[in-house]
Design a binder for these strands. Structure first.
Length: 270
DNA sequence: ATGGTAGCCTTGCTA
């Protein structure tokens, strides 16, 4: 059986990016594509065009900002819309569903700038809710992937100018320590399982020619549960979509899982 | 050099 491929892409408006999105689906044919910053209500989602390309749509949206979705060749099962832990949080930043044996989340973590504002506190509390969700999923002992725009550069080597970004919410120690906590819980940063080199980015600001100078940030991540990490075959960043005209400021990251592989992982006792 | 760009049912906000 061929590998199960999962990609994640912050498209910065699914309507503005529809031609590039359809081209990516046709060229790469991922089993699941996680989208962030769709920036539209579910009722405005370009569902017909995506379904005509052979993909199912599970979306959580709001007007103008945020918005996440799961596009998949096979139907999503048992979807969860919204990150648990705060009933007052109305921002459309998390959607999760099962696709056969693997569970996948598409998440758009709050940016958190400026750090003096309530936005930073919201970011940190959102990360703690994500950790709680990860713990609940880990107890299931299933392969799962938490994919998306984390708005966290895990280390200085993931930033083109770490000095300039030292105080930025994407690089602050509070953000990095919470990201590391997810790893200490048992999740694996899929990209770093296969690539040790510094300065590999997933985002380049539209301003100041950052793309042409390859001055970017690594903020889009695929975090794998132990049972997913046991089965991962490869992971990489696909820079091609960022080089197009009218591109998103982010480019896709993907991984391939061998779901037929047996895990040798010891189960927790009953 | 306090700019620059892109997308949003916009005239500022978010990134």
């Amino acid at each position: 059986m061929s590998p199960f491929r999962i990609a994640s892409w912050n498209v910065n408006s699914v309507k503005a990016r529809l031609p590039h999105l359809l081209a990516f689906l046709a060229a790469e044919k991922p089993d699941v594509l996680c989208l962030q910053e769709t920036k539209c209500l579910e009722s405005d989602f370009p569902r017909l065009e995506i379904e005509a390309a052979g993909y199912r749509v599970e979306a959580l949206g709001q007007r103008a900002y945020n918005g996440v979705a799961l596009l998949s060749l096979k139907a999503a099962e048992d979807p969860l819309r919204g990150l648990p832990g705060d009933p007052a949080d109305a921002e459309a930043r998390y959607i999760e569903a099962s696709f056969g044996a693997v569970r996948v989340a598409s998440l758009y973590l709050p940016n958190g700038n400026p750090v003096e504002s309530a936005k930073f506190a919201y970011k940190l509390s959102w990360m703690e809710r994500l950790a709680a969700r990860a713990e609940a999923l880990l107890l299931r002992e299933i392969p799962f992937v938490l994919a998306g725009d984390y708005n966290v550069c895990p280390a200085d080597e993931d930033v083109y100018d770490p000095v300039a970004f030292a105080g930025d919410a994407l690089c602050r120690i509070e953000s990095r320590s919470r990201f590391r906590s997810l790893l200490y819980q048992g999740l694996a940063d899929a990209f770093r399982l296969f690539h040790r080199e510094p300065h590999r980015y997933t985002f380049w600001d539209y301003q100041a020619g950052r793309w042409n100078r390859d001055e970017g940030l690594r903020i889009d991540h695929l975090l794998l549960s132990p049972d997913a990490a046991d089965r991962v075959l490869d992971c990489d960043i696909d820079r091609k979509p960022r080089g197009k005209e009218r591109a998103s400021d982010h480019t896709p990251i993907w991984c391939a899982l061998d779901l037929c592989a047996k895990s040798s992982r010891k189960r927790r006792p009953e």
